[in-house]
Write a protein that binds this DNA or RNA. Structure first.
Length: 322
DNA sequence: CGCGTTACGGTTGAT
DNA sequence: GTATCAACCGTAACG
C-alpha cells in the first residue's frame, strides 16, 4: 500500500472515528484493537522487542501493549475479552436446563407454568426465579435453537467466559484475580474470535452458539460495503465513513481481498507497514518458528470465516515458553 | 526511560 | 422497543 493510500485510510478512519493517540495511532474509544494488531504485538514480543518498542512501532499505548502481552502470557490468547452483556442473574445454566427439561417433557407448557415449576421444584426461589418474559426469551433464544436436544453446554457459551478448556486456560488455577472467574480474559463467544470474522464472513452472522455477530472489529466498519453490507445494518447510521467520497475504496479493499493486511494498513501511519510490505513485518516473520507469521494469520482469517469454532486451538496457541 | 496500574470516557449486549 | 447495568475496551497519566 502506498503512502497516499495509507493516508487515505488513516484519514477515513480518523474522520469516521476521530481519535488519535499520543503516538499518532488511530483508535476507537471503547473498542478493541483490531486483532491483527494484537497478533502483531504478541509476535513482536516473541521476537524480543521490548514493549516500549512495540508501542512505538505500532503506535499503540504502552499500557495497551502491556495489557495484551500480560493477557497473552496468562491465557495464551490474544483475544479481547467479551464486551457487553451481563451475567445471567437468574437464568443460570441450571435454570435453563430445567426449563429445557420442562419444555421437552411438555412442549405445550406455558412460561408461567414453567415459572411455577421452577419454584415448586426448588430450582429457584422467589428471589431468583426468572420472569415469565425471561422464560419466554429463554425458550425462544436458547432452547428452540437447540433442536438437536443440545447438550447443557449449549448454554455455556452464553456466559462461560471462554468455553475453551485447553491447558492454558485451566492452568492458572485461581484465575487472574482480575475478577472474572477462572477463565479470564477471553471471549465467552468464540465466534468473536477475530474481529474480522464479520469483516470476512457474513456466514458468521449466526454464530454456532446462537449469538449474533458482534462488530468486534471497528475497522471492519470502515468497509461497510461489499463484505459487511449484508449484516449489521443497524450500525450503519453511525458510519460517517459512508459520507466520504469513498468510491475508490471498494476497489482498494477488493484489491486486498479483504485480507488482514488491509486492516493493518488502516491502523496508524507508518505502522501500516507492519503487515503489508514494510520493514516492520517482513524481516521478522521468517524467524518466528512456531509464532504467527503473516501467512498463518491470513490462514487464520480464512479459517475463522470457515468455521467459528476451530480457531480457538490456533489462537490459543501454546504460550511463550518463558 | 520502561513498565505496571488505574481513572476515565467510551461501547456492547444480556437482562 | 427501550433502559439499565455490568462487562470490556484503549488511552493517558501516575508512580
Amino acid at each position: 500500500m502506498n503512502p497516499e493510500t495509507e493516508f487515505y485510510f488513516d484519514t477515513c478512519l480518523l474522520q469516521a472515528y476521530g481519535e488519535v493517540n499520543q503516538l499518532g495511532g488511530v483508535f476507537v474509544n471503547g473498542r478493541p484493537l483490531p486483532n491483527p494488531v494484537r497478533v502483531r504485538i504478541v509476535e513482536l514480543a516473541r521476537l524480543g522487542l521490548r514493549p516500549c518498542d512495540i508501542s512505538r512501532q505500532l503506535r499503540v499505548s504502552h499500557g495497551c501493549v502491556s495489557k495484551i502481552l500480560a493477557r497473552y502470557n496468562e491465557t495464551g490468547s490474544i483475544l479481547p475479552g467479551a464486551i457487553g452483556g451481563s451475567k445471567p442473574r437468574v437464568t443460570t445454566p441450571v435454570v435453563v436446563q430445567s426449563i429445557r427439561d420442562y419444555k421437552q417433557g411438555d412442549p405445550g407448557i406455558f412460561a408461567w407454568e414453567i415459572r411455577d415449576r421452577l419454584l415448586s421444584d426448588g430450582v429457584c426461589d422467589k428471589y431468583n426465579v426468572p420472569s415469565v418474559s425471561s422464560i419466554s426469551r429463554i425458550l425462544r433464544n436458547k432452547i428452540r435453537t437447540q433442536s438437536g436436544g443440545g447438550k447443557p453446554s449449549q448454554y455455556g457459551p452464553v456466559y462461560p467466559y471462554c468455553p475453551y478448556t485447553g491447558p492454558r486456560m485451566v492452568a492458572p488455577g485461581t484465575g487472574t484475580g482480575t475478577g472474572t472467574g477462572a477463565q479470564v480474559g477471553l471471549p465467552r463467544n468464540w465466534c468473536d474470535i477475530l474481529g474480522f470474522r464479520d469483516f470476512m464472513s457474513p456466514a458468521a452472522l449466526s454464530g454456532s452458539d446462537g449469538h449474533a455477530a458482534k462488530v468486534e472489529d471497528w475497522t471492519s466498519r470502515a468497509f461497510p460495503s461489499g463484505v459487511k453490507g449484508a449484516e449489521k445494518i443497524h450500525n450503519e447510521p453511525e458510519i460517517k465513513y459512508q459520507q466520504q467520497p469513498s468510491s475508490s475504496l471498494p476497489a482498494l479493499v477488493s484489491a486486498c481481498s479483504y485480507s488482514a493486511p488491509s486492516q493493518y494498513a488502516t491502523y496508524g501511519g507508518p505502522a501500516a507497514n507492519y503487515m503489508s510490505s514494510g520493514p516492520g513485518w517482513q524481516p521478522q516473520s521468517s524467524g518466528l518458528g512456531p509464532g504467527l507469521g503473516p501467512g498463518l494469520i491470513i490462514f487464520l482469517l480464512v479459517f475463522v470465516s470457515a468455521d467459528d469454532r476451530k480457531p480457538q486451538s490456533l489462537l490459543n496457541k501454546p504460550p511463550p515458553s518463558s
